[in-house]
Simulated assay, not measured.
Amino acid sequence: MHLSGKTVLLTGATGSIGQDIARELARDGARVMLHYGRNTTKAEALAKELGGALIVQGDLSTPAGPTRLWDDAIAVAGEIHALVNNAGQLTPSSVSDPLEAWHAVWQSDLQVNLMAAADLCRAAIQHFRIIGGGRIVNIASRAGQGGYRAEAMSYGATKAALINLTQSIARGFGPENIHATAIAPGWVKTEMSDAYVAQHGEAAALSGIPIGRMAHTQEIGELVSFVLRPTQASLSGAVLDVNGASQMR
């Protein structure tokens, strides 16, 4: 029970990856605060499954939403010892789109994938200073390291910025016992990847992955829980790749 006595705020908890992160955190003894956007039923079901988990609603798509979410979480939990920024989105777009539509996609991805995480990190750092330290894990992507598909450039760009944000926090606030680590998955078997396979075929998704399969959501959950263990302070600033050797640095 390495995380016993620790409260962890997890964004995007009702998604495929979020649910298994929550399960692993709970197995490791953490009190998990599950953030959700719209699916109250799924959030309540997951909280019941975990036993003792808390839930908090928040709209990360608006500029004021992330800070309001943090304030609401603090009001319920009192203290938060770790933040996991897992919520994110991939919105297809094309350079052939009208400029207004192009801007709308970029602004939306920037808000959800980067600004929401940055605002939550800001609030967390201020809180961690008061309680003597804390941990941040940002779920980035392989897409943020080396360019990405032409129809998802906004996704790749925001994930690259999230990695840089993580490392800046690790460098700038490490002396205050505030640690930050990024996890960069490649293809993970989720509803989103299933939709891609249905459209393009499994071979298109698995080509270039030497181990021959996508990552499982449980793998991501186990890694997040491991990173948050008090013994793993030296992982601060690291970018942990989970991509089946499809991209190596």
Rank of each mutant, 00 (worst) to 15 (best):
Q126D: 15
A203H: 04
T166P: 14
V112G: 05
F128H: 11
V242M: 14
I178S: 08
V239K: 02
Y148R: 01
G144P: 01
E202T: 11
V242F: 00
G147M: 01
A117G: 12
P230A: 11
L69Y: 05
D72T: 08
P185L: 07
V76M: 06
V105C: 03
G37M: 05
N138A: 07
Y36N: 06
S246I: 05
A238E: 14
L206C: 02
A104V: 10
A233G: 10
V239L: 13
S154G: 10
S96C: 11
R229E: 15
Y148P: 00
E44H: 08
N177K: 14
L90R: 05
V224M: 07
N113F: 00
I209G: 02
A195S: 09
S61K: 12
A160D: 02
T14M: 07
M153Q: 09
N113Y: 04
A82P: 14
S108T: 15
V95A: 07
L34P: 07
E49V: 06
R68V: 14
D119V: 15
I80C: 01
E49S: 07
G133R: 12
G212A: 01
A116Q: 10
S193C: 03
A101G: 03
S234V: 15
L228T: 07
Q247P: 04
S141A: 12
S168L: 12
L235R: 06
A143Q: 01
A170N: 15
L54C: 05
R129I: 08
E24T: 03
E79Q: 14
F173W: 15
V197M: 07
G12K: 06
G134R: 11
I136T: 13
V112S: 03
G201V: 03
R249Y: 13
I80Q: 02
P230H: 08
I183V: 12
A75Y: 03
D119R: 09
G37P: 02
H81A: 08
T190S: 03
D59H: 09
K48A: 13
R31I: 04
S207V: 04
S246Q: 07
M248W: 09
Q218D: 13
L60Y: 05
L50R: 00
A64E: 15
T158Y: 00
T91C: 07
D109V: 12
N164Y: 10
G18F: 02
V112C: 01
N86I: 06
I80E: 02
A75P: 02
A143S: 12
G208M: 00
L25C: 03
I209M: 01
G5K: 03
Q57Y: 02
T231C: 08
Q218H: 05
A143E: 06
T166I: 11
A22T: 11
Q126W: 10
G12V: 11
